[in-house]
């Protein structure tokens, strides 16, 4: 039995649910945390916080621009405002407010988007955020975190809270394959090295970390040693880890559940070009929107499984070899 990225890693909680649980835990520790919802708290799991702390929870209705503005005001008064909705609505409907009312004054607003990527499945493309990482990377001063599984999400939410300034955390709808069975500590600006290797580096975020790990296992059977970097901190990105990987392995694959333009692939390419140029292959959704289907069907159809990462690794290894001849 394989999971939605085509590996046999067991499934843990959905990253959106891990967010909801960690928010309650944080809320117990820190009275200044408030939560803003846009009529989707039973989808984003902020209903857990709402039940625990009704006075610190504000459902603003279906009005994302206003939500972000209210969060801005609360943060100006010393609150740490977690705003949550589907990424597609939170980022796209309120982009101007994120720029002007949050990023520009550098306020402590933590935007947690759920239902990112094509893996939401049947609900289809209107609900799928595929451009959110590009958009939030382009907000000056924003931190962008894309955690892979339950435990790394919990840690990412804590890192978001502890950071002084605006943060976007991207979470997903389906149960996520477990990458960190024993827990992990997410640090802003730091890559997490999941596997070491010297032939090729697989860089991924979100669900695609599990795909990269699965791909590394397949490559290992052919005596190809793949390094796997979880770029949970997509911005700021760990330039040292990327440059080191480029120098030591000479070939990179970037995998993400996002449009080609502006996401993790762009961020890695920017760093590689500026430090240690090596061939890069990209595994992503391309330049198109999704469609309805099961998460498994969609990940397969859009080329976001471990096998797709393996094929990209072979391509980039060919290019590396051609270069060295």
């Amino acid at each position: 039995m394989t999971n939605l990225v085509g590996t046999d890693a067991p499934l843990g909680a959905a990253t959106r649910e891990a967010f909801g649980d960690e928010l309650v835990a944080l809320g117990k520790e820190h009275a200044e945390i408030v939560v803003i919802d846009g009529d989707v708290n039973n989808s984003t799991y902020t209903n857990k916080f709402m039940k625990e702390f009704p006075d610190r929870f504000f459902n603003c209705g279906i009005a994302e621009s206003n939500m972000i503005g209210i969060a801005s005001g609360l943060a100006s008064c010393g609150k740490v405002a977690f705003v949550s909705s589907f990424s597609a609505f939170l980022i796209n409907n309120a982009y101007e407010q994120l720029r002007m009312s949050v990023a520009y004054p550098r306020l402590n607003v933590k935007c947690v988007g759920t239902h990112a990527g094509i893996s939401i499945g049947e609900d289809g493309p209107s609900q799928m955020a595929l451009e959110d990482v590009a958009a939030t990377r382009a907000l000056a001063g924003f931190v962008v975190l894309v955690p892979a599984d339950e435990k790394s999400t919990r840690s990412a939410i804590r890192a978001a809270y502890a950071h002084d300034g605006p943060v976007y955390v991207r979470t997903g709808r389906p149960k996520a394959p477990i990458v960190y069975a024993d827990g992990v500590e997410v640090r802003i600006g730091k890559a997490l090295q999941v596997r070491d290797g010297i032939d090729v580096t697989l860089i991924a975020n979100g669900l695609m970390v599990a795909a990269a790990v699965g791909a590394a296992d397949v490559l290992a059977r052919e005596n190809l040693r793949a390094r796997v970097l979880d770029m949970v901190s997509t911005k700021p990105i760990d330039e040292d880890a990327i440059a080191k990987a480029a120098r030591e392995t000479g070939a990179i694959v970037v995998a993400e559940e996002h449009l080609h333009a502006g996401g993790l692939g762009s961020a890695v390419a920017e760093t590689v070009a500026a430090t240690a140029p090596v061939p890069i292959e990209f595994v992503d959704v391309g330049d198109r929107y999704g469609e309805s289907g099961t998460p498994e069907e969609l990940m397969l159809h859009y080329g976001l499984t471990a096998s797709d990462v393996v094929r990209a690794a072979k391509r980039v290894l060919d290019r590396k070899q051609t270069l060295s001849i």
Binding site: V34, F58, S65, N66, M67, I68, G69, I70, A71, S72, G73, L74, A75, S76, C77, G78, K79, A81, E96, Q97, R99, M100, S101, Y104, P105
Partner: peptide
């Protein structure tokens, strides 16, 4: 509040009032 993009101040004011 940092303003200049019209339409955003009332929402920010609501945040201050709630706080």
């Amino acid at each position: 509040a940092s303003t200049g993009s019209l339409g955003e101040g009332l929402s920010i004011g609501i945040g201050h009032a709630l706080a």
